[in-house]
Write a protein that binds this DNA or RNA. Structure first.
Lengths: 187, 187
DNA sequence: CTGAGTTTTTGACTTTTATCAAGGGTTTAT
DNA sequence: ATAAACCCTTGATAAAAGTCAAAAACTCAG
C-alpha cells in the first residue's frame, strides 16, 4: 500500500497535506528483472522509490558496462544529473530483479514543491542523505585497495553481492572481473 | 559588499525578503592563508561562501594528509557530513590563501528555512549542484588513468594547480607525489 | 648572501592490478 | 541429451603506479 511505504520515516516538519499530496502523485510500476527505468540518451523524467527489489545504474563506455551505483528497497533513485538539469542522461537504470517501484514525474514534483512548500524540505533532506552517501563513497574509494573495497561492500551492502553479477560488482568497485575473482578466491 | 556577492545568481523563485533575511545572517570573516575554517573532531557549525580566495578540505589518515576537495571563490563549502548530521567532522577545511568568506551558522540557516520557506529552495538548488558535481567526480575517477585525472583537473580547475602544492593535488587525484611529478615532467 | 629546511624531481626496484589466453561450469534452447 | 552461449576462474605476462632513496630546486630567516 502506498501509505505504508515508509517514505516519510525520519522526516519531520512536513504537513500531512503535503505527504498526501505527494503520495497521490506517485505511480506504481511493477517490473520484471532487467526492466529499464531510465535510458541513456533520454531525459530522466521520474524520481523512483524502490518499494521492493533493487536496481543498478550504469553507463557504457568503450564497449564496457560500468556500474555507477546499486539501489536497494527503501531507497530513491534516478539519473540525478539528467533529472536535475533536464538534459539527456548518460546513464541507464535497470532493475536487478522483479521489483515494485513508485515514481513521480519531474513536473509533478515541481508542482508539489509549489503547492506544498514544506515538501521542499523532504526533498532537501533526501538530497542531503544522498550527498553524504556519495561523499563517503568517494572518500572511501580514494585510499582503499581492491581487496578492501570488496570487503567494505560485503560489510555495507551484502545484498548486492547476492543480487549482482561479478562483472557488475567489479565495475562498481573499479577493478576487473579477474581481480575480483582472485580476491574472492582468497577469502 | 554583501549585496553583490552573486550568491543568488541563477536562482529563481526566492523572494527578496528571503534573500535579505539570509544575507542579514551572514558574517564576514577575513582570513590569512592556512586559517582553519573547520576542524576535524568538532561539529561543523557554519556553511561558508567563499567571496575571495580558496579553500581545501582534507583529512588525515595513517599520518597522510588526504585532500577531499578544493573550493574556489563563488562556491559554498563546509564539512557537509558533520554540518548535516551534527556529528564531529572527520575533515578539516583551511584556506589556501588570504581569503574573504561569509558564513551562516547552522541554527541561523534552519531558522531561515522556517522564516522563509522559499529559502529552502535556494539551499536545495545549491545541494543539487553539489550533488551533481560530486557524482561527476566519482564517475570520472572510476575509469581514468592518473595522467587523465591530472589533465582533467588542469582543464576544469586550473586555478587549483597554481594555488595548491604538489602533495595536496596528488592526494586529491589519488596518486603519489612521485607519480604526479612524473606526469608533469612528461607534458 | 647563505645555509637550514622544505618541496619537488629523478632513479632503481617492488607491488598491485590489468590484459590476454585458455579452461571449467552452468544455463538454455533445440 | 547435447551443443551453444555465457559466466566465472585460473595462469602467464605486461603495464601502471607505489615505495624507498637520493639529488636538485626552491624558500626564507638570519
Amino acid at each position: 500500500m502506498k501509505q505504508s511505504l515508509g517514505l516519510f520515516e525520519n522526516i519531520t516538519g512536513v504537513s500531512d497535506a503535503a505527504k498526501q499530496g505527494f503520495i497521490s502523485l506517485l505511480e506504481e510500476v511493477k517490473t520484471e528483472k532487467g526492466h529499464k527505468l531510465e535510458q541513456e540518451g533520454q531525459v530522466s523524467h521520474h524520481l523512483y522509490y524502490i518499494a521492493e527489489g533493487s536496481a543498478r545504474s550504469y553507463y557504457v563506455r568503450d564497449n564496457r558496462d560500468i556500474t555507477v551505483s546499486f539501489s536497494l528497497a527503501g531507497e530513491f533513485v534516478t539519473a540525478m544529473h539528467s533529472f536535475i538539469t533536464r538534459s539527456p542522461s548518460y546513464e541507464t537504470i535497470e532493475t536487478l530483479e522483479k521489483s515494485i517501484v513508485y515514481r513521480i514525474s519531474y513536473e509533478d514534483l515541481q508542482q508539489c514543491f509549489l503547492d506544498f512548500p514544506d515538501m521542499e524540505r523532504t526533498y532537501r533532506i533526501i538530497l542531503e542523505k544522498y550527498y553524504i552517501a556519495l561523499e563517503e563513497q568517494l572518500i572511501f574509494s580514494k585510499f582503499k585497495s581492491a581487496k578492501d573495497r570488496y570487503l567494505e561492500l560485503m560489510e555495507n551492502k551484502p545484498k548486492i553481492i547476492q543480487k549482482a553479477s561479478v562483472g557488475q560488482i567489479a565495475s562498481f568497485l573499479d577493478m576487473t572481473i579477474e581481480t575480483l575473482s582472485r580476491i574472492r578466491a582468497k577469502i
